[in-house]
């Protein structure tokens, strides 16, 4: 489903003579199968967010190739990446990234609008998603009128509404309290079981990491070890 081959990435800091090259990822290779939940753990600055940004197409690798659903996405144009993203990827962000001027319903409807879905279809699907995340009665609430947990559920509903085969999540529980965190983790596992959605989750929380079938540890830009969780064997 997802494959990274010999990925190297470096940032260039400063300009001209004063520029410094900072390597972020070095020779990263891994593969994720369909229906897997893979968690990536590592300290701050280890390169895990860069890894996710590469998989999201927000940045391009310095070297190496990325395959998603058997398609080499390394050299897609910005427009093609946008099309690929809307068709195949769902995103859950740490700080939810909801558009503040849009209601919960409108935020969830947004990917369907971008995809060009019909009015009837998108209304039905957005309402179904709201019901699925238990926020049917909060459809007309603006993000600032919702709690952190509710906002994250809206964010998940937005990620799921186009029924993507892959969801990329960056610290999805980072802004949630323990009760909401557990609720969200159960929900992710349910979605994985019921809809066979592949999850790639970046976290530094052991409890979150534990829900994955596998956990990859990244240290100083290199994949260090791979841990397969017993519970999922």
């Amino acid at each position: 489903m997802i494959q990274m081959k010999q990925i190297n990435h470096q940032f260039i800091i400063g300009k001209k003579k004063r520029k410094t090259i900072v390597p972020v990822l070095e020779n990263v290779n891994f593969q994720i199968k369909q229906g897997e939940i893979v968690t990536i753990v590592g300290k701050s600055g280890s390169g895990k967010s860069t890894l996710l940004n590469l998989l999201s197409g927000y940045i391009r690798p310095t070297n190496g190739e990325i395959f998603i659903k058997d398609q080499n996405v390394t050299k897609l144009s910005e427009g093609d990446w946008a099309d690929f993203r809307i068709q195949n990827l769902g995103f859950i962000f740490q700080s939810f990234q909801l558009i503040p001027s849009m209601t919960a319903y409108q935020n969830i409807e947004l990917p369907l609008i971008l995809k060009g879905a019909s009015n009837i279809a998108r209304k039905q699907q957005a309402l179904d998603m709201l019901e699925m995340v238990g926020l049917s009665d909060h459809a007309d609430y603006y993000p600032n009128e919702l709690s952190g947990g509710q906002q994250q559920r809206v964010s998940i509903a937005r990620a799921l509404v186009v029924k993507p085969p892959i969801i990329l999540a960056d610290e999805p529980t980072g802004s949630l309290d323990s009760e909401n965190e557990q609720e969200l983790l159960n929900f992710i596992q349910k979605l994985n079981r019921d809809l066979n959605i592949t999850f790639l989750i970046i976290t530094h929380d052991d409890q979150v990491a534990a829900i994955g079938h596998r956990t990859l540890l990244i240290k100083d830009g290199k994949l260090q070890e791979e841990k397969v969780h017993e519970v999922h064997r």
Binding site: A82, D83, I86, F93, L98, I99, L114
Partner: peptide, 8 residues
Amino acid sequence: IMKAIGAH
């Protein structure tokens, strides 16, 4: 945000 979720 729109670009992040797939706006062309």
